[in-house]
């Protein structure tokens, strides 16, 4: 038990530290690296909760794909941080006030938080016994049955994102040398090869 508690505090404090560093570090590459650290530690928290499937997905998707993509974008865009930070002090008072109000609201609303006595009866999907089904199976049982509507809708949202990315960036450029296989195969010798008789001593 004590090991679990220690692990929890370790993972959560590193996550919070890494999250702060993501927004405060000067170099965007460092930010992305801290983001990866935050993801790894959140994955650790999921393992502690017994949700190893989510932990693995977090590592595979966020660290493996999203963070690497961020890294590419950061390196390719050459963002000028000094310019981005410009005006930071100017907006600090207003931003600080808004942040403070939100924080107060958070404290006010969560201060009165009690777990409702009806929480067990109002739960949407009963938690299966962890000794009988693995949590991958439990998620699968819900996602493809009760939540099929949400699952399909999420798929459509990704489709829109894909169409959007292509519509906004794809251009058919001229003068690009592309391989056209059917053209290559259809090329006949008589179209391209010319046979010339060269008389001796006079050249072509």
């Amino acid at each position: 038990m004590i090991i679990q508690t220690l692990a929890f505090y370790l993972f959560s404090s590193v996550t919070v530290f890494a999250a702060v560093m993501v927004i405060s570090s000067k170099n965007p590459v460092h930010s992305v690296l801290f983001l990866i650290l935050a993801f790894f530690n959140s994955a650790g928290l999921f393992v502690l909760l017994g949700a190893e499937f989510l932990a693995m997905i977090l590592v595979v998707v966020y660290v493996g794909a999203v963070a690497v993509l961020f890294m590419f974008v950061v390196m390719m865009l050459d963002i000028n941080i000094a310019e981005l930070k410009h005006g930071f002090l100017q907006y600090l008072p207003l931003g600080g006030v808004v942040g403070l109000i939100l924080l107060l609201e958070l404290i006010l609303s969560l201060g009165g938080f009690i777990i409702s006595s009806q929480s067990q009866s109002s739960i949407a999907a009963p938690r299966p016994n962890i000794n009988e089904v693995t949590n991958t199976e439990a998620i699968g049982n819900l996602i493809y049955t009760n939540y099929i509507y949400f699952f399909q809708a999420a798929g459509l949202i990704l489709l829109v994102a894909m169409i959007g990315a292509i519509v906004l960036t794809h251009r058919s450029r001229e003068n690009v040398r592309k391989q056209n296989i059917s053209d290559q195969i259809n090329r006949r010798p008589q179209d391209t090869i010319e046979i010339k008789k060269v008389t001796t001593g006079s050249g072509v």
Partner: peptide, 8 residues
């Protein structure tokens, strides 16, 4: 779904 289409 709606908003994403509208942004594009």
């Amino acid at each position: 779904l709606q908003s994403l289409s509208l942004y594009v």
